Simulated assay, not measured.
Amino acid sequence: MAINVTRILTNYPEFGTFSDVINKTGINELTKNRQTITVLAVDNDSMGSISGRAQDELKRILMTHIVLDYHDTLKIQRLGKRSITLTNLYQTTGVAQYGQGFLNMTKMSPGNVVFGSAVQDAPLVAKLLGSVLAQPFNISVLRVSTPIVPPGIGKAVLAPPPPPGLPPPAPSPKKAGVPSPANFKHKSAPAPAPGDKAADSPTSGSWSAGPGIGLAAVIELRMK
């Protein structure tokens, strides 16, 4: 069965811009001879972050959004908390460098899955927002939050900031530790009265009485 991405996305006007670029850049023709793909679709508002770029650059960017394997939300849910590498359509061009033809999909938690370029040190910028369409095991369309621009193809698009008005995250509680010696104030012992002399310890040098024990009591205890 030939896969026609633009025809599939016709029923989803929120991805009209994404579908239009797929069609104009010829990516749609490259997918028709494939039997299994996963499309990481970006909605119209998020596509605005890469609008105005050269058509060749847009083609290379969106080719990285075509994964050459089947992944739907059910399959992703079965993954453990780990990262996997996905091969994308750009890898088939023969010009992909330094991992541009691969994506990193990381499952942070059951409801938090993120994507990014597999190029070293590239950020995970696109969050999985849900499933648009699933036809096992031919085509899956997943909605992601942000276009993925691999380093070396164009200027990166960072993940959008959190909505305004949200309170900043609470600071992490500090672990209780051993107080620093600098936090202690030295308290010197009272000077002995004239004529008094501390008795020598029978075991180890000097011996000092604890609070509330007078010198006479110390001598009495020593004599016993």
Rank of each mutant, 00 (worst) to 15 (best):
E14C: 06
E14T: 12
E14S: 14
F15H: 02
G16F: 06
G16D: 13
G16N: 14
G16T: 10
T17H: 09
T17L: 00
F18P: 00
F18K: 06
S19A: 15
S19F: 03
V21A: 02
I22E: 04
N23S: 15
N23K: 11
N23P: 00
K24R: 10
K24N: 14
K24W: 03
I27C: 05
I27L: 09
I27Q: 04
N28C: 06
N28V: 08
E29Y: 07
L30G: 01
L30D: 10
L30K: 13
K32P: 00
N33G: 11
N33C: 02
N33R: 11
Q35A: 12
Q35P: 05
I37A: 12
I37W: 04
I37K: 08
T38F: 10
V39C: 09
V39T: 05
A41N: 10
A41K: 05
A41T: 07
D43K: 01
D43E: 14
N44P: 08
N44C: 07
N44I: 02
D45R: 01
S46V: 04
S46W: 03
M47V: 09
M47D: 13
M47A: 12
M47F: 02
G48E: 15
S49M: 12
S49D: 09
I50G: 04
S51F: 06
G52P: 02
R53P: 07
R53L: 15
R53N: 10
A54Q: 13
D56R: 05
E57I: 05
K59T: 01
R60Q: 14
I61V: 10
I61D: 09
L62T: 02
L62F: 04
L62W: 01
L62M: 11
L62K: 03
L62Y: 02
H65N: 05
I66T: 03
I66A: 00
I66D: 00
I66K: 02
I66Y: 07
I66R: 00
I66E: 05
V67W: 05
V67P: 12
L68I: 10
L68H: 01
D69E: 15
D69T: 11
D69H: 05
H71W: 14
H71V: 01
H71R: 12
D72V: 05
D72G: 05
D72P: 07
D72S: 09
T73F: 06
T73C: 13
L74W: 12
Q77G: 13
Q77P: 00
R78N: 15
R78T: 10
L79D: 15
K81V: 08
K81G: 12
R82I: 11
S83G: 10
I84G: 06
I84S: 12
L86V: 03
L86F: 03
L86C: 03
T87Q: 14
T87Y: 00
N88H: 08
L89M: 15
L89E: 00
Y90H: 05
Y90L: 04
Q91M: 04
Q91V: 01
T92N: 06
